[in-house]
Design a binder for these strands. Sequence first.
DNA 1: TTGAATGGTTGACATGTGTAGACCGATATG
DNA 2: CATATCGGTCTACACATGTCAACCATTCAA
Lengths: 125, 125
Amino acid sequence: MERVNLSAGEWRVMEELWKAPATLMELVHALGESAGWAKSTVSTVVRRMEDKGLIRAEQEGRAKVFYPAIAREKAAAAETESLLFRVYHGSVGLMVSTLLQNRRISREELKELQALLDQGEEEQT
Amino acid sequence: MERVNLSAGEWRVMEELWKAPATLMELVHALGESAGWAKSTVSTVVRRMEDKGLIRAEQEGRAKVFYPAIAREKAAAAETESLLFRVYHGSVGLMVSTLLQNRRISREELKELQALLDQGEEEQT
DNA sequence: TTGAATGGTTGACATGTGTAGACCGATATG
DNA sequence: CATATCGGTCTACACATGTCAACCATTCAA
């Protein structure tokens, strides 16, 4: 269970690659639009991420195609756990309560959450 | 609604100050034990935090006493919201579901969460 | 009076991250 | 052929953060 902890910029890149693997130039276009990054910015971030093993590249014709090397769920879980302990000392209740206090949550979403909890209860049995 | 976003080190300091306001030396002792920080490390981090307005100091006798300048709930909420959007695009359901998937949650905690949700439902009415 | 404790301040270095300009070779196209 | 585009590398800078050693002035106890 590796300790992945992505920066905001790294998340942007991963988001693209989780949608679909892409060449550097595809990333340049996507992130140029969505993040306003210059080509060299994209390139640098991508290179550093490859060095770290967050993504990997495969030569495909003239261009390299980049793939995520970690699953989105894994990265999301790692970030979330890290925050859970740093901020809430591991208390899920506190975290969820904060989450709920800070928004007007829709009736539908409440139902969904309750369903999630019920599911958790069953598994426990 | 200021954008507070504390680093891991800053959290350690704030944790101490949220327990109770403290002098630099009290922080040095506490963080020396809990974090293994040298006196100068504590001092530097504290100074930078004061510059940023995260904490404020009041002369009290020979020593300055440091106080948190932001509430814990505010800081916690800011971090949580930031993660919620960066990682889950704002979906509370996804976030909670990840949280639940990653642990065996106790029956009591489940009850608590359910109570939280029920409360949310009432408010909505 | 001298040495330890109190209560600091300063300057410095390493690493990670955000950001990009300059440059370069290959290829496609007018 | 010239030149634009594709696909990419390299170097560099700034700022935040983690980390500390060295230094200093004041006070208090032995």
